[in-house]
Design a protein around this nucleic acid. Sequence first.
DNA 1: TCAGTTACACTCACTAGTCGGTATACTTCT
DNA 2: AGAAGTATACCGACTAGTGAGTGTAACTGA
Lengths: 191, 191
Amino acid sequence: MKTSGKPTRERIVDAASKLFYGEGIRAVSVDAVAEKAGLTKRTLYYHFQSKDELIAAYLDGRDQPNLALFQRWFEEAEGGIDQKIRAIFGNLAKSARHPRWKGCGYLRTAAELADMPGHPAIKTGIAHKKRVEAWLASSFAAEGIRSPELLARQIILLLDGCFAVVLLNRDASYMETAGEAAATLVKAALA
Amino acid sequence: MKTSGKPTRERIVDAASKLFYGEGIRAVSVDAVAEKAGLTKRTLYYHFQSKDELIAAYLDGRDQPNLALFQRWFEEAEGGIDQKIRAIFGNLAKSARHPRWKGCGYLRTAAELADMPGHPAIKTGIAHKKRVEAWLASSFAAEGIRSPELLARQIILLLDGCFAVVLLNRDASYMETAGEAAATLVKAALA
DNA sequence: TCAGTTACACTCACTAGTCGGTATACTTCT
DNA sequence: AGAAGTATACCGACTAGTGAGTGTAACTGA
């Protein structure tokens, strides 16, 4: 009973993605994912060995699109590199105002699985953040900034900082504040 | 069967604190808290109406000590205000290297309860962060910084950013990077 | 007396994961 | 061609255990 052209495995990951992101990993049962995907739990377990594997697949699926989004926001922005960085935060603020926004899936997963540091989902999260950081560093290097790696780390800290803060207080204006801080740091690194 | 001089309610909150912080809210059962506190679940429910109430009590109990710690680190540090702020991050890095460190309890709770924005525990978290932010702002105002509130928000973003990042990648050196960024922002605000 | 506590049995909903079996389609042997 | 086998994908029903929270009667110490 395939309800769409998508392969079953993909449909399961889609369903898991929506539920895990929306309600949290531990709050969502495998049954709920199966139901959302329109199949039985038995079939889900045919495609995935365990819930942990499903969690990892959920985060894997968000890696590329997330980075691509940041890159698009960066490229489409007008002005110098400080303004391009600021634009990322501005766009983030816009998405954070949507009611279904629930922070960064990677950070929330790390928070939920804080007692299992070796979990595959955590490793995926670390890899994702490293990729974003490396992209930032290479962009800074291209602008001739002295220590691009250091600046990239600082921007990552502000990025994840506003994810965390806004998830708590639901005030997306903190993201614009983070954008200002980021622009200040970029200008300081350029000087 | 009181095993210590402490009142029962306090012993329950202590036990909950250790377990919730160490393993996460949803991962810890009320039975586990009761056992850790050395009493029966029935007694726990004599003192608390629900698990949610217990969660709120856990976070309430961390508010004052957490802020006091930051203030002590700030006051004990040598140098100008930028170095005093940096010192907070340096001390944070030290504690983050302890194996039992698991990030910020408030942020982790917000991540776990992302789908219940009105939860009392979330409100406690917001109030706590506001208190830290207000203290920072007043410290900056005392130094004659032009827009102390803005700078305080930026520091909060770095603070919570390094909590989030280090919880994910377990590399406490990000806290020192955050400290540098914070010092840069303070200096920029002084100029 | 009475708040605080205990033991313990209980409800009811939910949880990750499994058992045994079915339907379809493609392959392989004769 | 036709029978037999095999791989893939699927499902209803189940196990064994855990979750929060309750009911109740009896005990303890101030």
